[in-house]
Nucleic acid binder design. Structure first.
Length: 874
RNA sequence: GCGGACGUGGUGGAACCGGUAGACACACAGGACUUAAAAUCCUGAGAGGGUGACCUCGUGAGGGUUCGAGUCCCUCCGUCCGCACCA
């Protein structure tokens, strides 16, 4: 009896070796089977994997292995998002070459991932920093350039003074660089952009098709794209006051209905009209300068008051040539939204209200709230921005807000009142083009050459890849490519004269915008093997962190479309969405500990004692009391890290995987606890013991199925089939914690059933054992193989199909239904599943508990929900 | 400020479409085994009351719809997340 304890670390190495040798996770196109592309967001090779990776990849692996068992042709690849700042920082700090550093990290992390036993097709591994990858990215860039989807312009950009590079709008968080955390500055630079705004409408409307994405992510993207329906309204300027060459100003508004509530116009400090007006007005010039300086940080914007400067220019109301309004330069007008100019309606917009109150401008209410009386309605300092009935608005009076919008829009479009004021409907987006220039070394070089005579010249395709020089220096800040002695000096591909290479490299988010395409044919001579991509895409299940809800996912959605339009890609589906289903997993958190001096401490240096209110922590080395802090995301800075290697070496990968999948719903944060891991470790041994006992007590293969099963054997079979059914559904829905609970439940049933004997029991137990092993397979694959072998099979459970559930076994002949009296549960009733409602009612009314609860009253009504509940109303 | 999500025992969390709330696990308590510990196995447990089969209360708070509400509707409170002068 009792085989020894399952030695996870040892057996895991063995089974990993077996999988690797048999190459079972290699994917190839197979039209005969339905495909399933399972992808987890690929890691940045920062040095070592962390628990967040373990959780992410464990989830993806469960799904991939399950789908494989369900008969799908699964593609489950892995690679490295390998360009980026940390490699350069390492080069600066430790004098190692960024490439050397990166590849060493990749080697380490590959080893770590392999020790997790993931069902990955390693033959497709890619690293974005290899010329064999970025060569194709350069080709894609050239095609985008040709198509007009990549372009250069001078613009105000977010400059990260720590990383010495430009950041995209999406990469500025609370006014700080997303990576460095430095306060971002505004600089005027000539930069490369991708025309993501060309796809704004499609990127927004197609969100509706992404039904298998979290609602939250879709909303975040929709808000980010920020569509608004409005009008462009052109206001004539009074000739006497307008600067030379300006006869009108165009403003953007989403509320043309409030046009009669206008009391001023305002333009941004960078607006051409402001610049012209400032030319011979030093005071205004100074004000504009001040405005430009502001707005460099969000903190300042928040604190800033609404301020303006009257330019002296007067504008003429589109519907009344005798109505003049002042034109201000104002600090709260954004040059890059709409037209950089607005008309201010204090009654209908809080900002305009603040502004009007400060400068003593008129406040005319134009919308009467539904619950207010026209005679008494007045506005204090709060604007009314909702719908209502139009007042003080001439021909709009009495209309609803919506009708007034239409009426105004129509009139503006068709009429030519006064001096050529007019308007046009316009959809405006908040989304800006994606600035991809980075003044860094460790990125994909932008393949163009700047020539004095020919201008910007694309590098001929035959010259790709433009490789990074291997002898760059990192001893001072700035772009190593820019200061490299020879790299940038080339001859113009067009005229042959001396010219310079573009020294900007691409934002690393470009690399990750198409890697999922490259995985479908990682060796292809062209960026994409169209057939392979057509077969595999879209990704059927994508799993990663919520932190990429906007950046990476939006860029990827853009890139898929841009690649379609440059004929690199075509989808078999009728949308151009790269990720059919998205799942965003929660973070891995851990308690934090602080020494008496206030320094963060590693969990490994701390011993926990007591519980509840008496729970305390002491430093193992000294026995000193340690402060237990909040539970937070595992991070280096707080030192609340647990190294996956340690866990895998001690408990095994299956244990780490199982714990990650237990308890917490995958979309929520999971708290890593030593007790939880130990519990997972105990369960592994429990499974091993159960399987061992089955193998020992009921040896041999499944054999011929008995003619009939006794009630005890039937119970085992029912439990097995029910569990298999439930676990399958739970995995399908990515509800791993529920699957884990179902497995626990089944293991408990099986464990207590094993003391019985008999030929039918033997068969049922063997079947149940096989089921148990199959259902733990996706989550604890090594243990499953070991158990599978122990049960006497000489195949790999990783290759076994998910058994078919016998539907008959999922239903019981007898059902237990609750009996309520007036909605309160009083009893329960075990009755035939097919019992008629009348019979159920009769049986319920006979129950002593029911009679007692009725207390002599006659039942007024009896509600019977078949197989569920009886409610006696009395 | 705007938008969204969430709120269930000591803890993590279950509960299909409105139908027995608390599955499963962790932690805990008691017992068995053991010289002892670990491991394992068995048992217990939402709160309160009763000797007892039982009764009352209970899913953030309050109200509503319903035979019946953790689930649907309204108001409020709290926590978390996203966006934030976007006209």
């Amino acid at each position: 009896m009792a085989t020894e304890r399952y030695n996870a670390p040892d057996r895991e190495r063995y089974w990993q070796h077996v999988w690797e040798k048999s190459q079972i996770f290699r994917a190839s196109e197979d039209k005969a089977r339905p495909k399933c592309y399972v992808l987890e967001m690929f890691p940045y090779p920062s040095g070592r994997i962390h628990m967040g990776h373990v959780r992410n990849y464990a989830m993806g692996d469960v799904f991939a292995r399950y789908k494989r068992a369900k008969g799908f042709n699964v593609l489950h690849p892995m690679g490295w998002d390998a360009f980026g700042m940390p490699a350069e920082n390492a080069a600066m700090e430790r004098k190692v070459d960024p490439g050397t550093w990166t590849y060493a990290n990749i080697d380490t992390m590959r080893g770590q991932l392999k020790s997790m036993g993931l069902s990955l097709d390693w033959s497709r591994e890619i690293a974005t920093c290899t010329p064999t990858y970025y060569k194709h990215q350069q080709k894609l860039f050239l095609d985008l350039l040709k198509k007009g989807l990549a372009y250069r312009k001078s613009s105000k950009v977010n400059w990260d003074p720590v990383d010495h590079t430009v950041l995209a709008n999406e990469q500025v968080i609370d006014g700080r660089g997303w990576r460095s955390g430095a306060l971002v500055e505004q600089r005027q630079l000539t930069q490369w952009f991708f025309k993501i705004t060309d796809y704004a409408e499609e990127l927004l409307s197609d969100l509706d098709t992404l039904v298998n994405w979290p609602e939250k992510v879709r909303l975040m993207q929709a808000n980010w794209i920020g569509r608004s329906d409005g009008m462009l309204v052109r206001w004539a300027l009074d000739k006497k006051t307008a600067p030379k060459g300006f006869s009108e100003v165009e403003v953007y508004t989403t509320r043309p209905d409030t046009l009669f509530g206008a009391s001023f116009l305002a333009v941004a400090a960078d607006h051409p009209l402001a610049k012209a007006a400032a030319e011979n007005n030093p005071e205004l010039e100074a004000f504009c300068e001040e405005c430009r300086r502001m707005g460099t940080s969000v903190a300042e914007i928040e604190a800033a008051e609404k301020r303006g400067f009257d330019t002296g220019i007067r504008a003429i109301h589109p519907f009344d040539k005798d109505w003049e309004l002042p034109v201000y330069v104002a600090n709260f007008i954004l040059m890059d939204y709409g037209t950089g100019a607005i008309f201010g309606c204090p009654a209908g917009d809080q900002r305009d209200m603040d502004f009007a109150r400060r400068y003593g401008l008129p406040v005319v209410p134009v919308i009467l709230p539904p619950d207010k009386d026209a005679a008494t309605f007045e506005l204090k300092d709060t604007a009314y921005t909702d719908d209502g009935t139009m007042i003080n608005s001439r021909f709009l009076d009495g209309l609803t807000t919506k009708a007034a919008f239409e009426e105004t829009a129509q009139r503006l479009e068709t009429q030519k009142l006064g001096r050529k004021p007019q308007g046009a409907r316009k959809v405006n987006f908040r989304l800006r083009d994606w600035g991809i220039s980075r003044q860094r070394y460790w990125g994909c070089p932008i393949p163009v050459v700047h020539c004095k005579t020919c201008g910007v010249v694309p590098v001929p395709e035959k010259d790709l890849p433009i490789k990074l020089p291997e002898d760059a220096t990192f001893d001072k800040p700035g772009n190593p490519l820019e200061r490299h002695p020879t790299w940038k000096h080339v001859n113009c591909p067009k005229c042959g004269e001396p010219a310079t290479r573009e020294t900007d490299t691409m934002d690393t988010f470009v690399d990750s915008s198409w890697y999922y395409v490259r995985f479908t044919a990682p060796e292809a001579a062209t960026p994409v093997d169209v057939d392979a991509a057509h077969y595999w895409l879209p990704v059927d299940q994508y799993i990663g962190g919520i932190e990429h809800a906007i950046l990476h996912l939006l860029y990827s959605r853009f890139f898929a479309r841009a690649m379609c339009d440059t004929r690199h890609l075509s989808f078999a589906t009728n949308t151009r969405e790269p990720f059919a289903a998205l799942f965003t997993q929660g973070m891995v958190t851990h308690e934090t500990y602080k020494s008496p001096e206030g320094f963060w401490m590693l969990p490994g240096d701390v011993r926990l004692e007591g519980e509840g209110a008496h729970r305390r922590a002491v430093e193992i080395a000294t026995g000193r009391q340690v402060t237990i802090g909040a539970t937070e995301k595992m991070s280096k800075s707080r030192k609340n890290l647990v190294d996956p290697d340690d866990i895998i070496a001690h408990y095994g990968a299956d244990c780490a995987r199982w714990f990650m999948l237990s308890d917490s719903p995958p979309e929520r944060d999971v708290i890593w606890t030593e007790a939880g891991v130990a519990g997972a470790g105990r369960f592994i041994q429990r499974i091993w013991r159960i399987v061992d006992e089955i193998a020992e007590t009921f040896p041999g293969p499944l054999g011929a199925r008995p003619e009939s099963f006794g009630p005890e054997a039937l119970e085992i079979r029912k439990a097995a089939h029910r569990a298999l059914d439930q676990v399958g559904r739970a995995i399908e829905a990515l509800r791993f914690n529920v699957a884990v609970a179902n497995i626990h439940e089944f293991a408990n049933v099986l464990h207590s059933a094993l003391s019985q004997s008999g030929p039918d029991i033997a068969w049922a137990a063997r079947e149940a054992g096989a089921f148990l092993v199959t259902m733990i397979g996706p989550m604890m694959p090594h243990l499953a193989e070991e158990c599978w072998a122990r049960l006497g099979y000489n195949t790999l459970v990783a290759n076994e199909p998910w058994p078919a559930v016998e539907p008959d076994l999922l239903v019981d002949d007898q059902v237990t239904i609750a009996v309520q009296v007036n909605g309160k549960r009083r009893d329960e009733l075990v009755i035939s599943r097919s019992a008629k409602s009348e019979d159920v009612e009769a049986a319920a009314l006979k129950l002593g508990s029911v009679l007692r609860a009725l207390d002599g009253r006659q039942p007024k009504k009896v509600i019977v929900v078949p197989q569920r509940i009886v409610n006696v109303v009395g």
